[in-house]
Simulated assay, not measured.
Amino acid sequence: MVKVKIPVYDIKSIDRGARGNLMVQRFDSYLENHYEHLHRPHRHSFFHMVLFTAGTGTHTIDFNTYTVMPFQMYFMVPGQVHSWHFDKNIQGYVVHFEEELFTTFLSHPQYLERFTFFRGGIESAVCNLPPAAHNSMIRLFESMLQESAGDTEQNLDMIRLRLLEIFINVDRYCGHKQANPGVQHKTTLLRSYQDLIEKHYRDLRLPRQYADLLYITPNHLNALCQDLLGKTAGDLVRERILLEAKRLLTNANMTITEIAYNLNFKDNSYFNRFFRKDVGITPDEFRKSFLNP
């Protein structure tokens, strides 16, 4: 049987005419050139942002499928698996950029991390813009298209400024609002927990291990997660492990045993039980259903 591998695209492999770490295009022309490849599951090595202004379809991000609607924005971070399926007359804008576009421009190297939609979470990957924002958002994207036709550093700086304006406005429309300092403290602590999970999910599996790193009690950590997310602290760790397992399973060149070892499961049968308990099927069955739907 021929092995199917999920491709990983960088900006230059999608558009050879792209300027370094940035690409700005109208979505219909972008789709016309790349739909044959991009409607199949793939990954990016860059940040990805899309605004739809017309048309319908579906967009699947990390195994979650959304119905595409006009004036809906999508945000993705490097490494996420996604695919498109569109009806006719899809229109909008697409922007690809690498993190270096801003780290070389701003004194805050982690600036993008302040925006929830650039943290890789499914719950914040989509923003439905209110009607009052439609015209202003179109003007910002049109301005970026005009600036992308130039090749000076001033053109690039103007695109950076327009992107920052888009990010801040989207955060106002769809970001998590901070009701009071108490809620803000809880949110900051939760973000710190999520950051630690992202760094250590392969090695640290127990909430008490993360609670120690945060200098709080396991009960405090669990109450925090249930209060803000309606989930236990352990749920967040398991969800991150399962997401990585699904991503790795899209790589047909890795065996199930290799994936189990990569995720620090010393016993392959334990990995199978862990996966099946939450997903309902075995890792091998998931791989076959995804690569050969």
Rank of each mutant, 00 (worst) to 15 (best):
residue 2 V to I: 08
residue 2 V to D: 07
residue 5 K to C: 06
residue 5 K to I: 15
residue 7 P to E: 11
residue 7 P to R: 08
residue 9 Y to K: 04
residue 19 R to F: 12
residue 20 G to Y: 09
residue 21 N to S: 02
residue 23 M to L: 15
residue 27 F to K: 04
residue 29 S to V: 03
residue 29 S to I: 01
residue 33 N to P: 00
residue 33 N to D: 05
residue 34 H to E: 08
residue 39 H to T: 13
residue 40 R to Q: 15
residue 43 R to H: 00
residue 44 H to Q: 01
residue 47 F to V: 11
residue 50 V to H: 01
residue 51 L to A: 04
residue 51 L to F: 03
residue 52 F to C: 06
residue 55 G to L: 09
residue 58 T to Y: 15
residue 60 T to Q: 11
residue 63 F to M: 05
residue 65 T to A: 12
residue 67 T to I: 11
residue 68 V to H: 06
residue 70 P to V: 12
residue 76 M to A: 07
residue 78 P to A: 07
residue 80 Q to P: 01
residue 81 V to R: 05
residue 83 S to R: 13
residue 89 N to R: 07
residue 90 I to W: 01
residue 95 V to H: 05
residue 96 H to I: 04
residue 101 L to N: 03
residue 102 F to E: 09
residue 106 L to H: 14
residue 106 L to C: 10
residue 111 Y to Q: 10
residue 114 R to L: 10
residue 115 F to T: 02
residue 116 T to I: 02
residue 117 F to S: 00
residue 117 F to K: 00
residue 121 G to E: 11
residue 124 S to V: 12
residue 125 A to L: 03
residue 133 A to I: 07
residue 138 I to G: 03
residue 147 E to G: 00
residue 154 Q to F: 01
residue 163 L to D: 07
residue 163 L to H: 05
residue 167 F to T: 14
residue 168 I to M: 14
residue 173 Y to F: 15
residue 176 H to G: 06
residue 177 K to F: 07
residue 180 N to K: 04
residue 181 P to K: 07
residue 182 G to T: 12
residue 184 Q to S: 06
residue 185 H to S: 06
residue 186 K to I: 02
residue 190 L to W: 04
residue 202 R to Q: 12
residue 205 R to M: 04
residue 208 R to Y: 09
residue 208 R to P: 00
residue 214 L to Y: 13
residue 217 T to F: 05
residue 218 P to C: 09
residue 218 P to K: 08
residue 219 N to F: 07
residue 219 N to W: 03
residue 220 H to T: 05
residue 230 G to D: 15
residue 230 G to I: 15
residue 231 K to M: 09
residue 232 T to Q: 12
residue 233 A to D: 04
residue 238 R to M: 05
residue 247 R to A: 13
residue 248 L to T: 13
residue 249 L to C: 11
residue 251 N to I: 10
residue 256 I to F: 05
residue 257 T to Y: 04
residue 258 E to Q: 15
residue 260 A to R: 07
residue 262 N to C: 08
residue 263 L to K: 12
residue 264 N to R: 11
residue 265 F to L: 00
residue 266 K to A: 01
residue 266 K to N: 08
residue 274 F to M: 01
residue 276 R to S: 13
residue 283 P to A: 05
residue 287 R to L: 01
residue 288 K to V: 11
residue 290 F to G: 00
